[in-house]
């Protein structure tokens, strides 16, 4: 079932990370399942153990189902100095989740991440591929509501 994503790339081991990204990005629950690992293993002729080794080494990959939108709040010092703790508190409250958890409606997963390189506009978070900066509690609420609105 993952064939169309896997076969976009030549069957060489150096394409492994690309293939895993492709699978994860196209999965509605943004993760790499056991079946996917099996398929990749057969295609690239590398062991599932190797693939799990790579999957679990890189923080952006997940082997567990996640929400439709991945929120990554930067936990690095430049954002911390400008109040990321307050933003985290707000996110936890308005989503009613802890770090690493997914909301009940399956819309959001809250994660922390290392520097996003937008420190000039700290505090910063990334939702999927979009970056949001100069965050305030009010702004966070609006961003979350906007995304919720778009899903309905």
């Amino acid at each position: 079932m993952y064939e169309k994503f896997i076969k976009k790339y030549a069957p060489t081991k150096d394409n492994l990370i690309y293939i895993l990204h492709e699978i994860q990005d196209n999965h509605p629950q943004q993760y790499v399942s056991e079946e996917a690992v099996q398929e990749v293993s057969e295609y690239l002729k590398v062991s599932p153990a190797h693939i799990y080794g790579v999957l679990t080494f890189y923080t952006m990959f997940s082997t567990k189902p996640r929400g439709k939108n991945i929120i990554r709040l930067c936990e690095s010092p430049p954002c911390f100095l400008r109040g990321s703790e307050q933003i985290l508190k707000k996110l936890k409250e308005s989503l009613d989740v802890k770090i690493g958890e997914t909301t009940k409606d399956g819309l959001f997963t809250l994660e922390l991440c290392a520097c996003l390189g937008v420190c000039g506009n700290a505090p910063v978070m990334m939702i999927n591929e979009d970056v949001y900066g100069d965050l305030t509690e009010k702004k966070v609420e609006k961003i979350i509501n906007d995304i919720k609105g778009r899903q309905e």
Partner: peptide, 11 residues
């Protein structure tokens, strides 16, 4: 692979 927290010139 710029990763230092607080550096973003490469980006």
């Amino acid at each position: 692979d710029e990763g230092d927290p607080g550096a973003f010139m490469d980006r």
